[in-house]
Simulated scan of single mutants.
Amino acid sequence: MYVRTSEVRGDPAKIDDGLRLVREEVFPAVTTMDGCAGMSLLVDRETGRCIATTSWQTEDAMRMSADTVRPLRDRAEMALGSTSGSEVHQWEVAVVHRDHAAPDGAHARLTWLSGDQAIVDRGIDLYRMVILPQIQAMDGFCSASLMVDRAAGRIVGTAAFDTRESLEASRGAAANIRTGIVRELGATIDDVEELEIAFAHLHVPEMA
């Protein structure tokens, strides 16, 4: 499985307008494209930052959809009040584990890492054997995933929790895990974000 992420900074006051467009127009359109498996939208209502993710059954399907998806992305940017466009990335899905579907009010923590190409396979093994079991044990755990860009040596891990409160309660334990990641991989933590799961229909199968 593969995913495309589109990161955009919009107007916080227009988050609901953008979400309405995603639900009513973008999601129905994108899921009719060959090889598309679903879509999700994460938002920060205070800053206006949004991350839209579409899932694809093959890398070819993802790449071939690029031109068709672009007008939908443009419309979403306009609805969200963005003036700077989107930052688009393509990823391989390496690990997915879901305890249960994300309920209304679910939130997620995204951890972005980078290094040389060698960190990717080591990072996948470390995530499966060491990190995922620790995340699963946290109160309110919902699901977790790991996406990689092998050529760029980039990794992003996502941990979803049932509520904002359970996400916040896990911050200390998550910080300890990140310290271990840096030590084991020699990677750089580029960013850590906490976002609301506003739309969750990504439909990526279990890949633990």
Rank of each mutant, 00 (worst) to 15 (best):
G38A: 06
T47E: 06
M33L: 15
P28L: 04
E46L: 04
A151F: 03
R164Y: 13
Q117K: 14
E193I: 09
V69F: 15
G85E: 00
A173I: 10
E194I: 02
D67S: 14
M207L: 15
D34H: 05
D139C: 03
L110C: 07
G153C: 05
A159K: 00
A208V: 12
V22Y: 04
E184N: 10
R20F: 06
G18E: 07
G123H: 01
A37T: 15
H97K: 05
T68V: 14
A198Y: 00
T54P: 04
I124E: 11
A61I: 02
D34Y: 02
R20M: 09
P28G: 09
R73H: 09
T31I: 11
I135F: 10
I177W: 08
T158M: 11
A187T: 05
V22K: 08
A106F: 02
M207Y: 06
D190I: 03
T32H: 14
P12A: 02
A198V: 00
V130I: 10
E87R: 15
G18C: 05
M1F: 11
R128E: 13
I119Q: 00
L146F: 09
G186H: 06
R150P: 02
S145N: 12
T68L: 14
D125G: 12
R45N: 00
A13V: 04
A169D: 13
Y2N: 06
S166D: 14
T53C: 11
G18P: 03
I124Q: 03
Y2L: 07
G10A: 05
E59P: 01
R128T: 10
V43S: 15
T53H: 07
G153F: 04
R128I: 06
A160L: 02
E92V: 03
R4K: 10
D104A: 12
T47M: 07
A152P: 02
A208L: 14
G35P: 01
L19I: 13
F199A: 00
E92T: 07
S143L: 01
D74C: 01
E196Y: 05
A52V: 14
A160W: 00
G172T: 12
A152H: 00
A187H: 06
R70A: 14
A187C: 11
D44S: 12
I119K: 01
A13L: 08
G38L: 03
A118D: 12
L167R: 06
D149K: 14
S166R: 15
P28M: 13
D191V: 01
F27C: 09
M129Q: 15
A66Y: 05
Q134G: 10
K14Y: 05
A108Q: 10
S143D: 09
S86T: 11
M129L: 14
E168L: 13
D162C: 10
I181L: 15
A66M: 07
E165C: 00
W56A: 06
V95G: 01
